[in-house]
Amino acid sequence: MSSPALSVLDLVPVRSDQTSANAVAATLDLARAADRLGYVRYWVAEHHNMPAVAATNPPVLIGLIGGQTSRIRVGSGGVMLPNHAPLVVAEQFALLEAAFPGRVDLGLGRAPGTDPITRWALRHGAGGVDDGAVERFGEYVDDVLTMMEPAGAGLDLRGRTHVLKATPAAQSVATPWLLGSSDYSARLAAEKGLPYVFAHHFSGSGTAEALALYRSSFRPSELLAEPRTFLTVNAAVAETAEEAERLALPQLLQMVALRTGQPLTPQPLVEEAERAVADGLPESHEGLIGAMRRRWVIGDAAGARAEIERLAASYDVDEVMVHPVAGAVSGTGPASAPARVRTLELLSG
């Protein structure tokens, strides 16, 4: 099996020993490492009102990361389009593309990335919690892509056509990707001839079916002649498999809390996570941890690289996007995430 190209997904986690400023500083350090190590792209997510996630605003983070790196592609994994006016998204990514030409990816998702009340607040209460934005996702995608083009979009109003351009003199356009964790976005990406990524790192089931649907339904477009996709995985890699298991525990407990409706808190340190396990977990939670653990890449360098190669071959992709989930031990510098950096270093060989 050949080794796939590697990329990075970052949610900008906030640990119990960190401020938001610390978390952003740690992400910039991680991005510089990915750039230095030859990773293909670095994407940041969009989540809101979550104590353990500082990735609330992808365009702002992409601007910071782009300014701290020189080669790696930077982008969103993704912008949750129903939360935003299409023109605003088009303007943000047209400006990022102008600043970092040929390096910007615009990943678009349909989910809100938050709870209903926060989503209502994001949209200033327009139309209430359910304003139809999710159902209009396909239309909004078209709007964003058209307005980013150098010619812009024509808006017909009262018998006149008004031209809307995301930026006055675009020379290049950010590369769009559709993201999803169900078959909806797979169908839409295939219909529009766009690149597509299934959230394997989050869902863990239905990946093969979604990719097969996308590939079998794909219609070539001016942007893309044939299907283009890759795989996303959670990964914790250390000098030994035992240490990698230990470092993965904080994120596993976070995901259990999310899946079981527990109150969300900043990500615990490794020792805090170990104490929680020692105090005893409900049997159902132990089963959930085991099920998630089997879908993650956790191990030493050789074992983790072999597992990533196996996954890439199994899903027929030539790129794998790694979400580095290794936690931090007590005494780690708050503005750093050395175990996450080490994960990238060991995977890159």
Rank of each mutant, 00 (worst) to 15 (best):
D318L: 14
H285E: 10
H323S: 07
M321Y: 00
V320T: 13
D318K: 15
L311Y: 02
A312C: 06
I289F: 15
P324L: 10
R294E: 13
W296D: 03
V320H: 10
A304N: 01
H323Q: 05
A313S: 05
I289Y: 15
G287I: 08
S284R: 06
R295A: 13
E307I: 15
E319H: 05
I308G: 09
V322M: 14
G303I: 10
M321R: 00
V317C: 01
A304C: 02
L288N: 08
A301R: 14
I298S: 08
G303E: 05
I298H: 10
A312Y: 09
D316L: 10
G280W: 02
R293G: 05
I298Y: 07
P282F: 07
W296T: 05
E283K: 03
V297P: 01
E309W: 03
A312E: 08
W296K: 01
S314W: 12
H285I: 03
E309M: 09
A301P: 01
P282C: 07
P324W: 11
A306M: 08
P282M: 07
I298T: 11
A301E: 11
H323D: 00
R310T: 07
L311E: 01
A313F: 02
R293Q: 12
L311S: 01
H285P: 00
L281T: 09
E319A: 02
V297W: 00
R295Y: 13
W296G: 03
I289T: 13
E309F: 03
P324F: 10
E319F: 00
P324Y: 08
V322Q: 15
G290N: 12
D316S: 13
V325S: 06
G287M: 04
D318C: 08
L281R: 12
P324Q: 13
V317W: 00
D300T: 08
G287D: 07
W296P: 03
V322W: 15
L281E: 11
M321C: 04
H285M: 06
I308F: 14
E319C: 04
E307Q: 15
G299P: 04
D318E: 15
I308P: 08
V322S: 12
M321S: 04
G299R: 06
R310A: 09
V317L: 00
E307L: 11
E286Q: 15
E319K: 03
V322C: 12
L281Y: 11
P282W: 10
R310F: 05
D300N: 08
A301G: 04
S284L: 03
E307Y: 14
G303W: 11
D316E: 11
V297I: 11
D318Y: 01
